[in-house]
Simulated scan of single mutants.
Amino acid sequence: MDMEKFLEFCREGNPISGEDKELHGLLTQCSYEAQRITMELNTSYHSKEEIVEIFSELTGTEVDSSFMCFPPFYTDFGKNINIGKNVFFNTGCSFQDRGGIHIGDGSLIGMNVTIATLNHGLPLETRNTTFASPVTLGKNVWIGSNATILPGVTVGDNSVIAAGAVVTKDVPKNVVVAGVPAKVVKAIPE
Rank of each mutant, 00 (worst) to 15 (best):
R127M: 08
G152Q: 09
G84T: 09
E33R: 15
D170N: 15
T130N: 14
D2I: 11
E49P: 06
E125K: 12
L118I: 12
E62T: 15
I188R: 13
F6Q: 06
V175N: 03
L137A: 03
T168G: 02
D105R: 10
N174T: 14
V113E: 00
S66Q: 05
L118V: 14
R127W: 04
V185D: 10
A132K: 02
E12H: 11
P72R: 02
G60P: 01
S65Y: 06
A34V: 05
K5R: 15
V141K: 00
C69S: 05
V185T: 12
T117C: 10
N140Q: 08
M39S: 15
K21G: 05
E40G: 11
S31I: 11
L118Q: 14
L27W: 04
P189Y: 10
V176I: 15
G110L: 08
G84V: 13
I83S: 01
G78P: 01
N158E: 12
T91K: 12
S66E: 04
G144Y: 03
T154L: 03
K169A: 13
V87Q: 03
S56A: 04
C30H: 08
E4P: 00
V185Q: 08
M68E: 07
D105G: 10
C30G: 06
E8A: 13
A178N: 02
A116V: 13
H102L: 08
F77W: 03
N112W: 00
L26E: 03
G164M: 07
G100S: 12
T75P: 02
V177A: 04
I161M: 02
S94A: 14
V52P: 02
K85R: 14
N146C: 13
H46L: 14
G100A: 09
E57Q: 10
V185I: 15
K169S: 09
D76T: 14
R36L: 10
L137S: 01
V63L: 08
C69P: 01
I51W: 04
P134W: 07
V171R: 00
E22R: 14
T91R: 08
I149R: 00
P151S: 09
N119D: 11
V113N: 01
P181T: 04
L58F: 10
K5V: 11
G110S: 11
P151K: 04
E125S: 14
L150A: 04
H46T: 11
A163V: 10
E22T: 13
E33P: 05
V166T: 02
V135C: 08
S44H: 14
E125W: 09
C30R: 10
G60W: 04
G100F: 03
P151V: 03
W142A: 11
P189W: 10
E19P: 01
M39Q: 14
